[in-house]
Amino acid sequence: MTGTSGVSSECIEEGIMENALVMIAVLDKKGTIFAWNHAAESITGYSKAEVIGNTSIWKSLYPDTEYRHSVTGKIAETLATKNYFENLETTIKTQSGDLRTILWNTKEIPWEGEPKVVAVGMDITRQKEMDAFSRSIIDNANVLMAVMARSRVLLWNKGAELITGYSSDEVVGNSSVWKRLYPDPEYRRTITRQITGIIAEQRYFENLETTIVTRGGERRIISWNTKQIEASGGYHEIAIGRDITAQRHAEEALLAYISEMAMRLKHPVEIIRDNIQEIADLINGGKLTKDEMVTMLEGQVRNASQIAANVQEFQKAIAEKNKEIPEAYRKFLEG
């Protein structure tokens, strides 16, 4: 057929096929290749001349016999019920020896009067690598990561399993984990109200702290950050929860230590001041013998020496714990 522009439909089809960014091969049911586009040549490294008219390409692409049989087995199984297959993922070996992951879709078409199969293969190697990389980051992140559609969990990483004690298998596909993490109904209501309020206002929240109860009954303080992402037909929420239990405990311990030291420094200094004033008054009143004066003054010297030692101990402890000191305390300590 010739179009109004004078270009035949075959030419257009050939142009599309040749310039497509995906592998396109036309083959018969035995696997004999009838067409092999430019992208197929680039991806596999095998030229049209090498592949058209024979079936040898499949052995080249799948040199491992066992793997080749598993792929042909899957294809045969699919084609037994329908005359096409969708999203079949295989790993081919290129002429240069690289492995590439191809996502195959096929369709039966008439080709020069005969029924043939057009196979479209998309090279998803890079995407797979990125997915594996992302998955690895998600799994190895030392934080709880969850992806949710409303409250139904779609993803629950290893960090989440480790922190909560609940496995991905138990959690993914339902929303029951939230009841387990927040077993107290009143607290759960408060948290839900808080989250709903924030989400309604700004669609995400930052550093929201909640206390969860793990599978083992342990209480952990989690600092949550969320983000909404567009997904098919709506939104998903990504929640990242950082376990700050140890940090909070360290802060509480540090605060207790600072309070204790403040009490053991300021208070005794005032005692020494008052004692010395009293000693001065007693001396003025002629109430003390020389020995008593010496005893009392030496007592205050000992008190002062002990306070100096306490200050030194305090400074040493602060230096040792320096990295753990939260910013607010650091500012306080720096005066």
């Binding site: 204790e260 009490m263 053991r264 208070h267 005794p268 005692i271 008190n303 002990q306 306070i307 306490n310």
Partner: peptide
């Protein structure tokens, strides 16, 4: 006499 002075020498 007194608990306060003891704070020089001991933790609370």
């Amino acid at each position: 006499d007194s608990v306060s002075t003891m704070l020089i020498y001991h933790s609370s």
